[in-house]
Design a protein around this nucleic acid. Sequence first.
RNA 1: GCGCCUGUAGCUCAGUGGAAGAGCGACGGCCUUCUAAGCCGUGGGUCGGAGGUUCGAAUCCUCCCAGGCGCACCA
Length: 505
Amino acid sequence: MPGKSLKRLEAALSGLAGAPVALERPTKAEHGDYATSVALQLAPAQRRPPRELAQELVEKAASLPEVERAEVAGPGFVNLWLGRDWFGEALGEILEAGSGYGGDQAEQRERVQVEMVSANPTGPIVVSAARNGAYGDSVARLLEFAGHEVEREYYYNDSGTQMERFRASVEAAREGREPPEDGYRGDYIQELAQLEGDPVPTILARIEATLERFRIHFDSWALQSELEQRLDQLLPRIDTYELEGAVWARSSAYGDDQDRVVIRSNGLPTYRAADIAYLEDKLRRGFDRAIYVLGADHHGTRNWYAAVARMLGYDPERLEVLLYQLVHLLRGGEVAQMSKRAGDIVMLDELLDEIGVDAARWYLVARSHDQTIEIDVDLAAEKTQKNPVYYVQYVAARIAGVMRNAGDAPVGAEPPAELSPEERDLVKRLAEFPAVVAEATERRGPHQLTNYAIYVADDFHRFYHHHRVLESGDAQAFRLGLCRATQIVVTRALDLIGVEAPERM
RNA sequence: GCGCCUGUAGCUCAGUGGAAGAGCGACGGCCUUCUAAGCCGUGGGUCGGAGGUUCGAAUCCUCCCAGGCGCACCA
């Protein structure tokens, strides 16, 4: 398990305190390098004053080789100042682990399927689907980095009501007619009308190309119409009944909010019937975990999926539904509507043309998935220079520049006699990376990586501004080591959200 | 009506029990030195409201207010 330098210190302190110690970074420098509130937590149970317990821990902690100084503060915090050796160890571990730093933290390796985007091919990918991809792919990357085996899958329908409307809309355009009611409009319909035959394969190819451009690669594509062919065998396995000519799943008895129609009174299956076949297919294929990435407008399907799993006799714990809130685009200060049918759409390709892949991926994943986000397209296009992604990427570019100038100069982790505050802060920040990765993975919150990356950039730019790396005498090897370690961490943090770390800017 | 999500600096948002934060915007400084896409400083807060739990609450519980999204024999 990487991040040993901090873990080891926590373990040593836990032994001294007789309880688990979690170290925190104090907000104020005068509160030390790290602090713990363990004495405050233990005091009630032990019926002793917290400051007294804290004082005991301070005296014991002073004996640890890593600890330079410890003191009691406030109601019973223990503040710790770490010594030169600890900083050397922490940096050394990063350099030794290299690009694997922070990875392979999974306790049990799983086969995981992440199904994402899955927009029906009725038109180009729009921005809300792009958030699905940016979020889902980042979660997938985190899981892979943790050591899991991950497959990305795209599920789509090429039949059914929506697709018929889409085809009819293209056909109408070919004949110069208005699209049918509830049909699709927009320039892309006119473009498709110029071509012969079924427009669906054309759209699918375009979707895949856009997603590849967006740095999302799908390992497999699942087709709803194929899955529907298995319904004859599957429906008898679940709890159903007939009502008013339709076949209903008794899902309310298995945790869903209500029963659902699976076969319409006209004999055609609903999309929920395909859900059953698809879910069975996923679990039968041997995935330990099947992750669905869905927009918040689909949150009602969460209980449905769990009910389907129960009806089929599978453990619903193997399913995981990740929801993300919607994206609003602002154009000219007003919210742009993004209905494909209305034709007033903002396509991912356009967004990528305007602000680039790096900024788009950053923006779409930088906020919590629980947060509705607003992206001002005009502003994002104008303000690329002030975009935080460039602030972070600039770190990588600056380091690459230093490394080019450094040539074969030795890179090490042995600290000079005196460490500056900027050097201490940067090492501490880098040492947190494994914990950040672990939490982002566990909570399925890749936005934590962008926040962390900004902190790293802050610390690095401050260090770089205040200290020379090359021609710094005894400190040079250590500072080159700091640069390399920062490069390792920033490059990985960016890669986990699908953003590149440039050599030059 | 029911369900999910949200409410923290002027704006966009981090922060899921420990000593209130970042970016942008505003104001004022710093380039004969490894990339100024940078650095330093100033100003800015009833953490939606009210109770409760706790030594300690932006964070947990209850209620209320406001906003978003759902509640199909569409997907």
